[in-house]
Simulated assay, not measured.
Amino acid sequence: MAVINRTPDSFYDRGSTFLLDRAVERSLCALDAGADWLDIGGVPFGRGPAVSPAEEIDRVVPVVEAVLRERPEAVISVDTYRADVADVAAAAGARVINDTSGLVDPRMTAVVARRGAYAVLCHSAGRPREEKPLARYHDVVAEVRAFLQDRVALAEAAGIPRDRLIVDPGHDLDKNTLHSLELTRRLGELAELGLPVLAAVSNKDFIGEAVDRPQGERVYASIAAMTACILAGARIVRMHDVVAAVDAARMSEAILGLRPPARVEHNTHPTRNV
């Protein structure tokens, strides 16, 4: 899952893809580099100036429409916690709603069900764009798992088929670095829910704090965290650096037997006695 931020204040790219043509260009380049789908967002999760639903729609929907005109086969998710935005985005062709708020909008499940979309159910505590309480957990993995089970039940009750649900433990979202590392280490316990697990670890603060690297110097550590998540059971990874992530993901899949090698030539020819 390649990250496309149509925002002027994203923590990673600082607005480099805020202009429509830049966002579309980055999207097409990500697909050409091997991304399986695009995750387009118009409002960062963290604190910042208010963005109205209408403005968020104006940021994300034109990107969805422009990319699908060029690449109608592309899978697109929209990163939003607002049901109104999800509704318009799905009508424009987005097939997945990536709600990092944990369904804070009570209308979200009804919209996803009616549109026949897929939904990413993410663990989060507190409302997006607001100051959060200090992160406190007795057992972060057990509490995240219970939260996700509750959201899955809520989504199914609203009419979203189970095979259209994806779960995300929400690395860094209302969690400190120790919590995010524990979630990575024990991700297999979340995979036991029987649903695809999404790991959104790219360039996050827990990576910077773990290896003492500032933003912009976390590529290698991000790839290491992504690979650990794949080996532990993640089947979707949300990443900024597409080329590096695609190679690492495909190697991980080959090791796990999920993808055949691109070719098998080494030591496959008969040995000649000289």
Rank of each mutant, 00 (worst) to 15 (best):
A221S: 10
R71V: 07
V43M: 02
N267K: 14
E131C: 00
Q215S: 13
R185A: 06
H269C: 03
L183A: 00
C122D: 01
R6I: 01
G257Y: 13
M239G: 03
A91V: 05
R114D: 08
C122Q: 08
Y12W: 01
R162P: 06
L28Y: 02
A146P: 03
A142R: 13
F18L: 09
Y12T: 00
V237E: 01
M251S: 14
I4D: 05
M226C: 15
R162H: 00
P128K: 04
E25V: 08
A200V: 04
A157N: 02
F147M: 02
A248C: 05
D163I: 14
V3N: 06
L28G: 09
D79R: 04
A33E: 15
L154K: 06
G257H: 13
Q149E: 15
V75N: 11
R186S: 05
L193Q: 12
Q215G: 09
V152A: 03
A113N: 07
P196L: 03
A157C: 01
R164Q: 08
H138D: 10
S202T: 04
V197F: 05
A113I: 06
R186K: 02
D174I: 04
D99L: 04
P53Q: 07
P72L: 03
V61R: 04
D36K: 02
L165F: 06
E55T: 06
P133W: 05
D87G: 10
Y220A: 15
H171G: 14
R47N: 11
P8R: 15
P214S: 02
A249D: 05
D168E: 05
D247G: 14
R22D: 15
A232C: 15
A33K: 10
R114L: 00
R14A: 12
V152M: 09
D163K: 09
E265F: 14
K132R: 15
Q215H: 10
D36S: 12
F11G: 07
S124C: 14
V219T: 13
D150S: 15
L31H: 11
L154Y: 01
D168W: 07
N176H: 07
T100E: 02
R69S: 09
R107K: 00
E143T: 13
E131W: 02
L181W: 08
R47Q: 14
H123R: 07
V75S: 12
D87K: 10
P169F: 11
L231K: 11
L181V: 12
D99P: 00
T80D: 00
S252L: 00
M1T: 10
D39Q: 06
G159M: 04
D247C: 14
A74I: 02
Y118F: 06
G194L: 12
A158Q: 09
W37A: 11
D163H: 15
R22E: 14
V197Q: 03
E192P: 11
F18H: 03
P133I: 03
M239W: 03
I160H: 02
R235L: 01
L190K: 08
A23T: 03
P49N: 14
S180A: 11
G188P: 04
A125F: 10
S16N: 08
A125N: 12
A74M: 04
S27P: 06
V63M: 04
P161N: 09
R250D: 05
L195G: 00
P72W: 05
Q149I: 01
P8M: 12
T17K: 12
E265R: 15
A225Q: 09
L258R: 14
L68T: 05
C29N: 13
R136P: 07
A91T: 08
R250C: 01
V61S: 08
D79K: 05
D212A: 15
